[in-house]
Design a protein around this nucleic acid. Structure first.
Lengths: 231, 231
DNA sequence: ACACCGTGTCACAAAACTGTCTCCGAAACG
DNA sequence: CGTTTCGGAGACAGTTTTGTGACACGGTGT
């Protein structure tokens, strides 16, 4: 249940500091100090999040990240890169390699923690594959079924796809345009506002007789499934 | 949402050709023909990509690029240098100055377009690195959400963009004019004082029931997000 | 042929947001 | 101090954006 974080960092002091703080934050932390050892360990088991130093003995963080991204099961593993200031100019390369986020040393622990939470929140659902659960809303892709507080909720095909897409990245805001592209498809010519109507219908049936609405309207931007919903 | 490209090129014919083709490609193009004017313009607002001629009246492209790289907020701005054949030997100097790519005239438009797309793609993740944290204020771009001490704070679109801009360079003081350019856009005609009103609204909702105010007013100059805030 | 369901669009109402004004106190200035 | 300049706050009217009921259309099963 508690997220597992793997730290790959060769500096003793920093590794210790990170372990201490992240464990205090309630994470299950593991530290490896060499790139090549981390590579081996990652073949055995994937953590929920990887904290990767840029320069490492054995294999560099960049190379490690590149190898990782080549594995389909690690495709969505959140990776945060740590770099010293001098290496900063290469940050573009770092992100291109597939890191999800990027911190320049020295960084503040609260900031790191915030970023970890943000990435975990976003990554969580995708690894569960067929069942997405947020708060009291469950969506089962393979069974094409949605439940609210355990009770079945009947959705039309479009409403289902819409909810599925929104729930696939809880918290993330999608523009109407993006929703049209991802739910309806890119080749259709449909009015933006149609999205509003479907969101409205989705809400009506999903919230029937309930007060809390898991779908957040973001004025001027679009809609999001509230990842904090029910917490 | 369409990427904005600034072309700095003193040759009429080439400038026109570029504008025509890049606009056809769907970019929002602006052309400036003098180096010194470009320098001024770049202080006001940064484009998404800069197309820079090597030789320019006023300030040379090299110098412009060097100045640009000295500014932290312009660090990631993709820059493509254009050089005449005779200058080609100096390519190393060009890249060393901080250009991300360079093209020798005459070049083919499709190649230019391809490189532009490549650079924009590469630069993209940097803006998606979505979380900014200063003190107890978190701003999550992708979720379009702001939290103060962990609690959600609801901001309107303009307030959000304003805070986003201020927080993207904590400590830096922005004039009202600069804020108008970067938050509202260059093409609007709006009173300076409107910025005050929005800062006021932002403060009210961000500090609700709290004493510490992370936004610093610099009398006679503008506003800044206090980088020491919370430390 | 008919009832039914899911959809896309529209029009109107409600809600949220915006830019400007005015007034007032605070800060600089001599 | 008296004066002037500048920024903060509330009020307000206009605009933009979103929520929603109504409606028409097409497909499907009966």
């Amino acid at each position: 249940m508690t997220p597992r974080i793997l730290i790959v960092e060769d500096e003793d002091a920093l590794a210790l500091l990170l372990r201490y703080n992240l464990e205090a934050e309630g994470f299950h932390v593991e530290v490896i100090m060499r790139g090549d050892e981390a590579d081996l360990a990652l073949r055995e088991q994937l953590p929920d999040l990887l904290l990767l130093d840029w320069m490492l003995p054995g294999i560099s963080g960049i190379e490690l990240c590149r190898r990782l991204r080549a594995r389909p099961e690690a495709e969505r593993l959140p990776v945060i890169m740590l770099t010293a200031r001098g290496e900063e100019s290469e940050r573009i390369r770092g992100l291109k390699t597939g890191a999800d986020d990027y911190l320049v040393k020295p960084f503040s622990i609260p900031e790191l923690v915030a970023r970890i939470h943000a990435l975990l929140r976003r990554a969580a659902p995708s690894r569960v594959a067929s069942l997405i659960v947020v708060g009291d809303v469950e969506l089962d892709r393979s069974a094409r079924r949605v439940r609210r507080a355990g009770a079945d909720v009947h959705l039309g095909p479009t409403e289902f796809k819409l909810l599925e897409f929104l729930m696939s990245h809880p918290g993330r805001v999608y523009s109407r345009e993006s929703l049209l592209n991802n739910v309806w498809g890119t080749d259709v010519f449909i009015d933006d506002r149609t999205v509003d109507v479907h969101v409205g219908r989705l809400r009506r049936v999903l919230n029937r007789g309930r007060k809390a609405d898991p779908i957040r309207t973001v004025r001027g931007s679009g809609y999001a499934f509230d990842e904090r919903f029910g917490r």
